[in-house]
Structure formats: structure tokens, C-alpha cells
Amino acid sequence: MSIEARLQELGIVLPEAAAPVASYVPVVVQGGFAHVSGQLPFIDGELVTGRLGEDISVEAGTAAARACGLMILAQLKAAGVLEKVERVVKLGGFVSSTAEFSDQPKVINGASDLMLDVFGEIGKHARAAVGVPALPLGAAVEVDAIIALAD
């Protein structure tokens, strides 16, 4: 089954791939891998902002991480490599949070679970989930990815 068909089966409509907000490209394909730059969470076209442990709940943070995952898929599609995904190798998750907040892994599960839903076994990946004091544009979450591609 194609990835596009799987997305349709799951009722997932990918957002438009976001343009970079600084001097970088969204996806670099090199040596059989797609390196996807950090993606911010847009839900219904609005950037999800705030800090976990301060003004945003774990549930809202998890939804934001899922939105980052959707943007990763949108960037892969825009780069013309979505159907070539052989394995989700690693996700890097960054959560804007207070010093006391320690549920970053639960938040980043939003992106991880999406990869498992869409790709199945090849969606299982290594991961980092870290708390940071601030993210670009005040975003609540940012997620980047390393994706292995088939020839």
C-alpha cells in the first residue's frame, strides 16, 4: 500500500509544507537519507505556542508534536520522497517547557505514534525528547527527523 493510500485510510490530510523561517532548507536528501529540518506545530493554520508546565497541557503538547510529525510528512512529500520511505530512523523532539516539567517523552509521543500509525513497523525509530527554555516563534514543540530512503 502506498503511503498516500495509508494516509487516506487513516483520514489524514497533510498540511502545506511550511517555508523555512531562516537560512536553511526543509529537507536534505543525501546518501540514502532524508534529513528533515525541525518542524513547528501548525494546527488549523495556527502555530501552537506556549510552554509546557506553564500555559499548555500535556495533551495540547502531544497534539502539537503530532502536528510537527504531519509537517515532517508534508516536507517529505514536497521533496518528492514520501513514497521512498524505507525506515524512520530517528526523531529529535524539543519541548518548550519550564525547569520543573519532566513529561517531554509523553509530549513527543504525539509525533512518534503518528509515525507508527502511518508506517507501521518501519515507523519504529530512535528518539530524543528534551526540554528547552524557548523555541523559534514561541512554538511549544519542534521535531526533526532522519529518514532512510529506498533507491
Rank of each mutant, 00 (worst) to 15 (best):
D55L: 02
G110R: 06
E9A: 14
V89N: 01
A139K: 07
V36R: 02
D113A: 11
A134G: 10
V141A: 13
A140D: 10
A140C: 14
A67M: 10
K90E: 06
A99Y: 11
L52Q: 07
T98N: 12
E59H: 00
I108D: 02
G80I: 08
I108A: 00
E121K: 12
L135P: 06
K106D: 12
G45M: 11
D44I: 01
A60S: 11
E54T: 05
D103L: 09
R6P: 00
T49G: 01
M1D: 12
P105K: 14
T49S: 07
D103M: 05
A145N: 06
K77E: 15
K106M: 09
Q30D: 09
M71F: 03
I122D: 04
L10N: 08
D44F: 02
D151A: 14
V29M: 07
Y24N: 01
G50E: 08
Q104A: 14
S23C: 07
K124N: 01
D103C: 00
I147P: 03
L116A: 11
R66F: 00
L47P: 02
G61M: 02
L137H: 08
V88C: 01
I3Q: 00
F101E: 03
A79E: 14
L149C: 08
L14A: 10
G120E: 11
A126F: 09
L114W: 02
A17I: 08
M115E: 03
I72L: 13
I147N: 04
Q8M: 06
M71R: 15
P15H: 07
G131K: 10
F119W: 02
L47F: 08
F42V: 03
A139L: 10
V13E: 13
P41G: 11
V95W: 01
A74W: 02
L76W: 05
A5G: 03
A148K: 09
A128S: 14
A140E: 10
I72G: 04
